[in-house]
């Protein structure tokens, strides 16, 4: 027993020294890299990890005047309250529906657009169309929402047109059944161009010789798209689909906040807008943090899952 222990101790000592030596030589070689990483790491710690200390207010009745230390601990009170909220299920459902709808419609539109752009032969046209399609991405939602509100108002362009048909244009923003579609389509309009970039890149990676060969064999454009281009970018599509999972609880605060109103809370109110109203407007920091914490936890799980799926099906790895 004792000898065994002794030998293993000796061995481990030996391995330790060898490990230490290796580590030293490794460090001697690569310390500049670590120094270069250091500032980023410090910033990450300060701005991403240190604030997590504040998560504790989800478990307190936080009063800014009393601070983190003095505010009374209340355990899971806010989580219980949140789960008991009749609107919580609704919020969750709205968030999921809107996010999934957005991802689905956006990616499909982007893929179709990418194919169309890819088929344009004249470089000038291609460039111009590209730029025009990218443009809305750079507008902030405040501006886009302002334009939409005006377009759809009773005296706006669309409003006048629909008014002539005896319709009320307010339904797009004020009718609970239509509102999600307004949200989804305005999102698609704004982001579709930008989302084509990655597909276009994937398309250029396909060897043009395959296409040319197919053309010689008599395949028309649609057939070439269907049998060559689509399978060619399939891994990219799978990758994007997997990674989108991570953002499935982000239904776009900025957009909805600027477009919604009480009439459409039933289908348009999402977790983020509720957190804003409860947390910042009504100063219930603890509840807002609790909801945010739940959302982040779920988001973390989903991202891990997405990464795993991406690694499995699209062979995509960061590390």
């Amino acid at each position: 027993m004792t000898t065994l222990a002794k030998t293993s101790a000796v061995r481990s000592l030996a391995t330790q020294t060898s490990i230490r030596r290796k580590a030293m030589s490794y460090l001697a070689r690569s310390w500049p890299l670590y120094v270069m990483v250091l500032p980023g790491l410090v910033l990450l710690l300060i701005f991403n990890y240190y604030p997590m200390y504040g998560i504790r207010i989800a478990f307190q009745d936080y009063n800014p005047a009393l601070g983190f230390d003095q505010s009374p601990w209340v355990g899971l009170k806010h989580f219980e309250y949140m789960l008991k909220l009749p609107t919580f299920r609704l919020l969750f459902r709205n968030t999921l529906m809107l996010a999934i709808g957005k991802i689905l419609f956006l990616q499909v539109t982007a893929i179709v657009l990418a194919f169309m752009l890819n088929e344009i032969r004249m470089r000038v046209f291609k460039r111009v169309f590209n730029q025009i399609l990218y443009l809305p991405h750079f507008l902030s939602w405040v501006i886009v929402a302002g334009i939409l509100l005006d377009l759809l108002s009773a005296n706006g362009l669309v409003g006048r047109f629909l008014g002539g048909l005896g319709l009320n244009s307010f339904m797009f923003l004020g009718n609970a059944a239509f509102f999600p579609w307004t949200v989804i389509f305005s999102h698609v309009w704004k982001e579709a161009g930008w989302s084509t970039i990655i597909y276009l890149a994937a398309l250029t990676a396909i060897d043009p010789q395959i296409s040319e060969a197919a053309a010689v064999d008599g395949a028309n454009r649609l057939q070439r798209i269907w049998y060559i281009n689509l399978p060619g970018i399939a891994p990219t599509i799978a990758l994007i689909a997997c990674l989108s999972l991570g953002g499935i609880l982000d239904a776009g605060f900025e957009q909805i906040f600027n477009l919604y109103n009480p009439t459409v809370y039933a289908t348009g109110d999402i977790l983020d807008t509720y957190v804003y109203r409860a947390g910042l407007i009504s100063a219930r920091f603890s509840l807002a943090t609790a909801i945010g914490l739940i959302k982040s936890t779920l988001g973390f799980v989903l991202i891990t899952l997405a990464y795993w799926l991406a690694a499995k099906y699209a062979n995509y790895r960061v590390f």
Binding site: T87, G174, A176, P262, T263, S282, R284
Partner: peptide
């Protein structure tokens, strides 16, 4: 009011705008 105010008010806003707009 601190605990339930926001909730009750958004419920109220939904109700009355819903009724007035005929939804």
């Amino acid at each position: 009011m601190v605990d339930f105010g926001a909730e009750l008010n958004s419920m109220w806003a939904q109700t009355w705008t819903g009724i007035v707009t005929g939804q």
